[in-house]
Design a binder for these strands. Structure first.
Lengths: 162, 162
DNA sequence: CTACATGCAAAGGGTTTGCACGACA
DNA sequence: TGTCGTGCAAACCCTTTGCATGTAG
């Protein structure tokens, strides 16, 4: 499960190149955070990254970790589990369904697909535990966000969400 | 998109029956929250439910809304977008992959599937906006949680998450 | 050298908790 | 009537922000 040393090196380099290409200064702190994300096998939260990174740079601040992680996310060099920067949202739709999620405003729309209901979970996954449900998450940018400026997006998304 | 009145009635009843079957008192507040979740077309957060419900019960408290929603969730009568009660977690895996998520401890494990990469997004969904990525989320209970008591779960999950 | 990044500490915002009062069974 | 639920307000925790200092390019 743990990536091979060569892999880690490769993945770290990809992140650092990504930052450089975006014209962002490669500070010591940022490189250490990139290395940490490159070698992480799980899905660490900011605090876990902070703790790991502090062993190499004891003076690093938690908010530096946050700033770097959001930056990597904005550049699509890393990802998040679920929807980033979102509070908990509830879903009262009892019928099996799937979601299209806008990565800009967070709007989530339900859709149905007979084909998606037929998905067979790989054997390997069934060994992880007791499988209860399978849902497809399609990520993208909704029509409104495609034609709306950044500043207005979140406001509109929040207000029309009901 | 808005459910038909009959549908709302049906969905509300399902929620209320669920609570009753679990031996939980059907208070006025809980019924109003059930009705709100039954008629919600979107994916409201606790505050949106609170605001809607306050029009019918102006004295209701936000924490009552939270308590009721978590209760409905625990009974699997409603669902959440993403993983409930979780802080943001980051994912450094650049290869296309999918997740098995434990609904008890929050642990998420990556897996790969050639079949899942071939999924065709329905036409209808492409009309929602610019589709960037499709990911399958398998939910269930991991092996460890199947044999571990409730109290130990979150602690273990948090500690081994890296 | 100069713009940008960091560390610190305090603020912010969502969610939870303790407790006394109120209401369902 | 007794137990469980509610409202209130304070506490909590994760995340963000403002600002003075430090540093990569």
């Amino acid at each position: 499960m743990q990536p091979k040393p060569d892999d880690i090196e490769l993945r770290a380099r990809r992140l650092e190149q990504g930052l450089r290409k975006a014209g962002i200064k490669l500070t010591h702190q940022r490189m250490v955070i990139c290395r940490e994300m490159a070698s992480a096998t799980g899905h660490p939260d900011a605090d876990a990254v902070y703790k790991a990174v502090r062993e190499k740079v004891p003076t690093i601040a938690l908010d530096t970790v946050y700033r770097t992680l959001w930056m990597l996310l904005d550049l699509r060099l890393i990802d998040t589990l679920g929807i980033p920067r979102e509070r908990t949202r509830f879903d009262g739709n009892a019928k099996p369904h799937h979601h299209f999620v806008c990565t800009k405003c967070g709007e989530a729309r339900d859709f149905y697909s007979a084909a998606f209901e037929l998905l067979e979970v790989p054997e390997e996954v069934r060994a992880f535990g007791d499988v209860q449900r399978t849902q497809v998450e399609v990520r993208g940018v909704c029509l409104r966000c495609l034609e709306t400026s950044d500043s207005e997006r979140r406001a509109k998304g929040a207000e029309e969400r009901s």
